[in-house]
Amino acid sequence: MPGMRSSIDARVERLARDVAQRVSRRSFIGGIGALMFGAASVPLLPVARGESPADPGDPQTCEYWRHCAIDGFLCACCGGSAHSCPPGTEPSAITWVGTCHNPADGHDYIISYNDCCGKSECGRCLCNRNEDDKPLYMPFKSNDYNWCAGSKVGISYHCSTARIVGIAK
């Protein structure tokens, strides 16, 4: 029931537990195949892909720190980036929002997982991590919805971004 703990504190607890961010098989885009990794075994190293040391890791990988609760195809593999849509796709403003821990600066960032919509699925870099996912009857915490439903172009889902919108802690 609502009211037991602050949502921020609860999230920080879970993040502290989950530093080796696993892949789990949930959500709308399910766990197709072995996805893209030896997953949790790959250490998070800064990669020469244009991300700064303060924003380490490769946004084309599931292990990228912002992807702690992402569910879908990574737009960085599809002509977009961690926070921008590929050409000709439409960002969905309506989405779900989570918190991920940045190991480089130790902060918990509020991440908005805006989808890019209007074309068929990108089909590359399927990534399925769902920290704190809840069932469909708690929509604001559920990855099982196609969040392109709220976009101007409708439910055609192409890929997902992970946009920093704030710092929780």
Partner: peptide, 30 residues
């Protein structure tokens, strides 16, 4: 580092996903 205030952070985490950062929502839906 500028921390988002607790109230705003809670808005972001629990409400912003549908109501949007400026509260404008989406006509016919939110």
């Amino acid at each position: 580092v500028v921390l988002t205030s607790a109230a705003q952070a809670n808005y972001m985490l629990n409400c912003m996903g549908c109501h949007l950062p400026d509260g404008s929502g989406a006509a016919g839906k939110v």
